[in-house]
């Protein structure tokens, strides 16, 4: 009976994951391996293709994503799909029209702002996923906030991994592939933002987790009882322990030949904290050096006094 409960928990979290996250690993890997036929992503590899990218996406059909059929159409207002709406005020990933861009210096900043819009939307998706973890909404509300504040960037980095390979990353819900070299060619410090995530993701992807493994791992990350400022640690640790058992069982069943996968996965949580610390420091540096930059209020809330 205990194992049956753990399997039921795994199924529940997998369903929540499918409901709230629009681009699954299975779909992303199909796109990256060219198995989607005519729907190959548009490749952005230089400034010219960056400009063409917006034009390209304007001509494409808006894919109907499963979870978005259930959510408000307004959700699309801040995501990459918005770019497909003719006459939209947003472009790629919510970017203001690239066609009438100003000085080249502003390109990076505008792209960064569009990434912020998508990130804020992703934080909302992760919040909904967290709320679906059994017991999460019964925790002290202040502790729920703390768990999200400290966990959400880690979750987003894990979710970015399936979208990446050694050569680049899918953006805009899988409709665009942006090359790693192009991201590296942006001016400093923008060129430094994605490289650590590529390095992490390439290694993380060798673990070959599937979407149902990912769902459990994300829940484990969210339920970390050692986040600073938690008021009532015990119930959080109890919830995490149950999810950890479910994850361990899941990995044994779905990856019987992968030795020590559970241990390897838990070790990734240490690497993640360092990546988030470095990321936040980079954002703080940007705030000082880029006078025109404004940080999204939700991201500001999350990053303030984080590390």
């Amino acid at each position: 009976p205990e194992a049956a409960d753990l399997r039921a928990l795994a199924r529940h979290l997998y369903e929540a994951y499918l409901k709230y996250f629009p681009l699954t690993k299975a779909k992303a890997r199909a796109i990256l391996s060219g198995k989607t036929g005519d729907n190959a992503p548009f490749v952005i590899h230089d400034m010219k293709s960056l400009m063409e990218g917006e034009q390209f996406i304007n001509c494409r059909q808006i894919p109907i994503l499963e979870h978005q059929q259930q959510t408000s159409a307004l959700t699309l207002g801040h995501g990459g799909i918005t770019a497909a709406h003719p006459g939209s005020e947003y472009g790629i990933m919510g970017m203001t029209s690239i066609g009438d861009q100003g000085p080249t210096d502003a390109v990076e900043l505008r792209f960064f702002q569009s990434c912020q819009s998508r990130s804020a939307e992703a934080v909302r998706e992760v919040t909904e996923f967290a709320k679906s973890i059994p017991g999460f909404i019964n925790l002290d509300l202040n502790d729920q906030v703390t768990l999200l504040k400290y966990g959400v960037i880690e979750v987003l980095i894990i979710m970015m991994s399936p979208l990446m390979n050694k050569d680049g990353t899918l953006i805009s819900y899988g409709q665009i592939f942006m090359t790693r070299e192009f991201l590296k060619s942006l001016r400093k410090p923008f060129c430094q933002m994605m490289e650590p995530k590529f390095e992490f993701s390439v290694k993380f992807n060798t673990l070959e987790l599937d979407d149902s493994d990912m769902a459990l791992f994300l829940a484990v990350i969210i339920l970390s009882g050692d986040r600073p400022g938690l008021l009532n640690v015990k119930p959080i640790e109890q919830l995490q322990e149950t999810v950890l058992h479910s994850l361990e069982l899941q990995l044994k069943l779905s990856h019987p030949d992968s030795l020590q996968l559970f241990a390897k996965l838990l070790q990734k949580m240490t690497d993640l904290r360092q990546i988030v610390t470095d990321h936040v420091h980079l954002i703080q540096l940007l705030k000082k050096t880029e006078v025109d930059m404004c940080l999204h209020p939700l991201l500001q809330e999350i990053m303030k006094d984080l590390y």
Partner: peptide
């Protein structure tokens, strides 16, 4: 609570996507 107003709202379902 004021420091994390939007997160509180998201958790309590009082923020619509458009507010983001």
């Amino acid at each position: 609570k004021e420091k994390h107003k939007i997160l509180h709202q998201l958790l309590q379902n009082s923020t619509s996507p458009v507010d983001l």
